[in-house]
């Protein structure tokens, strides 16, 4: 183990960190919005819509993220329809394709977490809220949402960590984020162990901070939340 190489690789690796963080933040945000829509579709009661959302979730969760990244970047780019469409300027860019694939991926997992959280609220409590004359909006705001949030936060926190790790796959389509930078540095220095361990340490640090943040948030949600949270 060459410690000088290990420590010496941090500045170069950290220079690629913004790309990793950007990929993570944007795809988590986009993915969350899509996840809410998917969860709503699955709980909509409209059978066709729910089936469509279910099929989407099944396909994404049943296939590797790598295959999804390649499909979006290489596969869609082959289609004439895509090349002639107004979307082509987006889909020709590896960076955009990585963002799209990551967002589509996390949306599927996220929608299951949101759906599970919403369904975890006991029916009796919703019934009780109805009996006291709360409107559907009030029921959602005061009874369903606070409890669902509490139920899904740990799982969504886990998903954030998986997503942060997932951004490493962007390196397979030429993007130089943290893992991509590590590969370049490893071949330049001929010290793969030191460089990859250093990169691993950075990911680990990020994830420790992330899970600490999620736990902090969980604590706040536990404590706050109004009358619906007592009981």
């Amino acid at each position: 183990m060459r410690w000088d190489v290990f420590f010496g690789s941090f500045p170069t690796l950290l220079s690629a960190l913004p790309v990793t963080l950007e990929l993570a933040v944007i795809s988590i945000t986009l993915g969350f919005l899509l996840a809410v829509l998917l969860a709503a579709a699955r709980l909509s009661g409209l059978r066709a819509l729910a089936a469509l959302a279910y099929a989407y979730v099944y396909v994404i969760r049943g296939t590797p993220l790598l295959a999804q990244v390649f499909f979006v970047y290489y596969g869609l780019g082959q289609l004439d329809a895509m090349r002639n469409s107004i979307l082509w300027p987006v889909f020709r860019e590896a960076y955009a394709c990585a963002l799209i694939a990551l967002s589509l991926n996390t949306a599927a997992y996220g929608s299951e977490i949101i759906r599970g959280g919403l369904l975890s609220v006991p029916r009796g409590q919703i019934e009780a809220a109805k009996a006291f004359g709360l409107s559907p909006t009030q029921r959602f705001r005061h009874v369903v949402f606070p409890q669902a949030l509490r139920a899904m936060l740990p799982a969504y926190g886990n998903e954030l960590i998986l997503m942060l790790k997932g951004t490493s796959l962007a390196s397979t389509i030429t993007i130089i984020e943290l893992t991509g930078q590590a590969r370049i540095l490893a071949s330049e220095t001929y010290a793969p162990i030191e460089v990859f361990l250093a990169a691993g340490a950075i990911y680990l640090g990020l994830n420790v901070v992330l899970s600490f943040g999620v736990r902090l948030l969980e604590g706040r949600v536990q404590r706050s939340g109004g009358f619906a949270m007592e009981g």
Partner: peptide, 9 residues
Amino acid sequence: GVPELLVIY
């Protein structure tokens, strides 16, 4: 806590 890809590399 580390990407699987990195473990493989």
